[in-house]
């Protein structure tokens, strides 16, 4: 089955933030004012109301020079997504274009996904339900699934004037990433592809100019071990144990009714063992 990916080549990004504006615009996201942080970056990180943020990192190069490191950051659309694993409501699913989707109508706002996302992307934010109630529901980049359905590109991809963000079949994107990497290496010796295997690879992946940690990215993001133990072992084993225990006491109830003639506190009679065995 064909799957798709969004490739972000941060090495050609100039930090214009058109992708941020396009995302806010297309997805009708509200204004989110944050305190001035002392730098050029607008928001600290993606939130439930600001699904992509252009990171602007002031970086000192190996020979003491200065450079800007820009990075479009948004949901990574993990192939093996921790949020999908932990969601108790099945509100998180994989879409046909490689996205990890959250259905806010099914979401109950438990925030399990928020604290299990290896990239700290998902957040609860105001959501108006079909019934018109405002509720805290998990939100994040949708990969513009709605646009993809209509044969359009995601709005950030469409907008990027430098083709730093491209979208297409995954095989092609992986090939393109290799080509981009070759070029990037001429300027950035540490350039590398960031498509972490601990989460099954990501459907939004990078050509980075430097090591992931330089961008504040986890070097080896993984589905948390606790989440695997919780959902793959504790939950099914727990259900089985509770079921077996219920069956056990029901059995005990029936066998006592049928065979327990032993004690007679009520009648004060003798212990009668004749029925045993």
């Amino acid at each position: 089955m064909t799957t798709y990916s969004k490739l972000v080549d941060v090495t050609v990004c100039t930090g214009c933030r058109a992708c941020m504006v396009a995302c806010k615009n297309w997805n009708d996201l509200p204004v989110e004012t944050q305190a001035y942080s002392g730098g050029y970056q607008s928001h600290e990180k993606p939130t439930g109301k600001t699904w992509n943020v252009l990171q602007m990192k002031e970086h000192e190069t190996a020979n003491g020079g200065f450079e800007w490191l820009y990075r479009h950051s948004a949901c990574y659309h993990c192939a093996d997504a921790a949020c999908e694993k932990v969601c108790p409501e099945g509100a998180i699913t994989y879409g046909e274009f490689g996205s990890v989707d959250i259905d806010q109508e099914a979401c109950v706002g438990c925030s399990y996904c928020v604290y299990n996302c290896p990239f700290d992307i998902v957040e609860l934010a105001d959501y108006v339900t079909e019934d018109g109630d405002v509720r805290q529901r998990a939100q994040k980049c949708t990969l513009c699934e709605d646009r993809l359905q209509e044969g359009l590109q995601p709005s950030c991809v469409d907008t990027c004037p430098l083709d730093a963000i491209v979208f297409g079949e995954r095989e092609e994107m992986l090939k393109l990433a290799e080509e981009r990497l070759e070029k990037a290496k001429q300027f950035f010796p540490n350039a590398q592809i960031y498509n972490p295997p601990g989460v099954g690879g990501t459907k939004m992946f990078y050509v980075l100019a430097d090591k992931p940690s330089v961008y504040g990215l986890p070097e080896n993001p993984e589905v948390p071990t606790s989440a695997v133990l919780w959902k793959d072992i504790a939950q099914p084993a727990g259900k089985a144990l509770l079921g077996v225990t219920m069956m056990g006491v029901l059995t005990g109830y029936v066998t006592n009714k049928l065979f327990n003639k032993g004690e007679h506190h009520e009648e004060g009679g003798e212990v009668d063992e004749s029925k045993h065995g």
């Binding site: 604290y115 948390p224 606790s226 989440a227 919780w230 504790a234 727990g238 509770l242």
Partner: peptide
């Protein structure tokens, strides 16, 4: 990480 392990502990303990 404490939050993540708490998810597991809460479920194991409740069971």
């Amino acid at each position: 990480s404490v939050v993540q392990w708490s998810n597991l502990i809460h479920v194991v303990a409740f069971i």
